[in-house]
Design a binder for these strands. Structure first.
Lengths: 352, 352
DNA sequence: GTGAAAGCGCTAACAG
DNA sequence: CTGTTAGCGCTTTCAC
């Protein structure tokens, strides 16, 4: 029960009358050491309850077997799913993850990155905050030669990898679907244009409208953020000006939920009075009434690719060329924006 | 851009013709060093882009300023909220968190704990998997003198702290509420009795039934797990035996969602044909129709307390006595189990 | 196959 | 106030 009473290599070595080098090698299964010695060492190590000291190991080997991760939020469907995939992939590659949370605060983000550098992570995976504009800290990361991969919310840093979903194409597909259903008066609650996902999703909207020769009504393109309030306010603005569209595409699912709230408040009904769809899936999309159709982001693939790409760069540092990967999305039709009724029940349970 | 070209204390020392001890102290703001030297050192450190090496620091100081965390899941409302609180609290105390995810797999849990021990975390916070029965690894943690705090899903380990919510009292309150509304035929979908939350919630159910002289019908106490399928199967079992209760208390919200699915499938309606409530809140509770009343767990407080307690033990190692904290819950009434209609609209947005 | 020597970058203890 | 000495526990040459 004593504090700081750890068994060391030397303890094992003395017990067996060998040197600690032998023990070190045996424990790592180095071919230098004979089978018998190796077995013996491992037996004693177990017996003594030896726990290696990674700090010492990493200090002398100059690698940490660790990837640092910075995300803006955890308690959010998208991020928690991506994070889970990151953890899984790292685990299967025998790497540790050190996760930090910026809480959408860019100063905190920078602090976390400093810490991660100080911990000598072998690579870094970042999804930036909504407010990140300064690139200094990221340039520092690259200057120290640390592989850097941006996920979903990206920055243009020379030498960094980026992994995004096809925001533009996914949105395009969704809008085209709405148009095929007969909608022509189409609104877009668009987040912020300074953030890449806001910009790209808007472009997809624009693409689809142009291709179908539909006018873009500037009253129906509303910026204001990615949260519920943005959706609520966005709808109310259109409602109060007595100029409502037939269909709304929301930049995120919380924005769509804000619209649901506003629509109910004014006594209208989705999807009959006004129809809606959004970018991004969540549990709520599935269970809300009417169930909310959306552009589904492959979170698992995003997280996995981020780790694999970073690992790849760590292991092939000299020959590696920075990559930008864009992952396709899928249209997930439920009760909204889906007149044909070909959707699964929202209560359909997986595997039953 | 070179790999592994880090500035060290010595580099700064040589530049200023002082010893590296002076630099080390100056950088940490040690009172030994004069204001001018300190300032000068900090200036040069910044200029050179110095990043301290925590591995070296921790190796020699024998502390890591780090708390290890093991949770069964991330992409789950309850855990992601607790984790976020853990991160926040650690951040404000200048501690780092190393989070690992067991994916409800006890072998993986043990592996992660070994890693965290090897990283020499100063303390450990754990919420065990559904299948954890073996206590060996936790005893090892205590043997190494590492402060250990269990959160929500606990194990009985001598010397460990536990932080739980009042599962028994919260359930009691919920069942009493249902009884006051006039229900007497009450069912409980109860998870697994081997897990503390399963056991405690069942006890709360039992308490309320006994106190109100209501019989407990063994056909209406159904075990089977904490997920959606458990809820689906539990309801179907009662339905198929032509013996339905008036009210169901679900051990978790996924179990309740499974019941929603089953109820819809057989063409019944909640809350008129059968009413329901559950332990645990989530976004879905709020947005589903009818909105699902529940026992609300104070996730923020759980996470915060876990970190504070662990930190307390780290800092007062010798005088510290292990603690068991139980945090009260709150009844959160929405559209189910709430005949008086005094609930807020499910679409009510915070702060609007 | 095995081990002795050197050092990773830093901090703690003590001496000046 | 500043510097010297000695490690922390491990891995990496390079001899034997």
């Amino acid at each position: 029960m004593e504090k700081n009473s750890h068994i060391t290599l030397d303890d094992i070595a003395k017990r067996l009358n060998v040197s600690k080098v032998t023990v070190s090698k045996a424990l790592r299964g180095h071919p230098d050491i004979s089978k018998e010695t190796t077995k013996l060492v491992q037996k004693i190590a177990l017996e003594l309850g030896y726990t290696p000291n990674y700090m010492a190991r990493n200090l002398s080997s100059k690698r940490s077997n660790t990837i640092g991760v910075v995300v803006p939020k955890i308690a959010h469907f998208f991020f928690s799913a991506v994070i889970e995939a990151i953890y899984d992939t790292a685990f299967h590659n025998n790497y540790e993850i050190i996760l930090t949370v910026s809480q959408e605060n860019s100063e905190r983000e920078a602090k976390h990155i400093e810490s991660l550098l100080a911990m000598r992570v072998d690579g870094l995976i970042v999804s930036i905050t909504q407010q990140t504009r300064d690139t200094a800290i990221f340039n520092k990361v690259k200057k120290q030669g640390i592989p850097l991969t941006f996920v979903d919310r990206i920055l243009n840093i020379p030498g960094a990898n980026t992994i995004t979903v096809d925001d533009r194409g996914g949105t395009f597909q969704a809008i085209e679907h709405a148009i095929k259903l007969g909608y022509t008066k189409i609104a877009h609650l668009a987040g912020f244009p300074e953030i890449n996902i806001g910009l790209r999703r808007y472009q997809g909207f624009e693409d689809a409208m142009k291709k179908n020769n539909l006018p873009i009504n500037s009253d129906w393109v509303i910026y204001g953020g990615f949260g519920e309030e943005a959706g609520y306010r966005g709808f109310m603005k259109m409602y109060n000006s007595n100029n409502l569209p037939e269909f709304i595409f929301a930049v995120t699912y919380p924005v769509a939920l804000g619209v649901y709230a506003a629509v109910q408040e004014v006594g209208m009904k989705i999807p009959n009075d006004i129809d809606i769809m959004c970018f991004g899936n969540s549990d709520v999309n599935r269970f809300i009434t009417p169930a909310l159709s959306c552009v589904d982001q492959p979170t698992e693939k995003l997280g996995r690719s981020a780790v694999e790409l970073t690992l790849n760069q760590i292991k092939n540092f000299d020959s590696f060329k920075p990559q930008s990967i864009e992952i396709p999305t899928e249209l997930l039709l439920r009760e909204t924006c889906s007149k044909n009724g070909k959707f699964k029940s929202k209560f359909a349970l997986d595997g039953i």
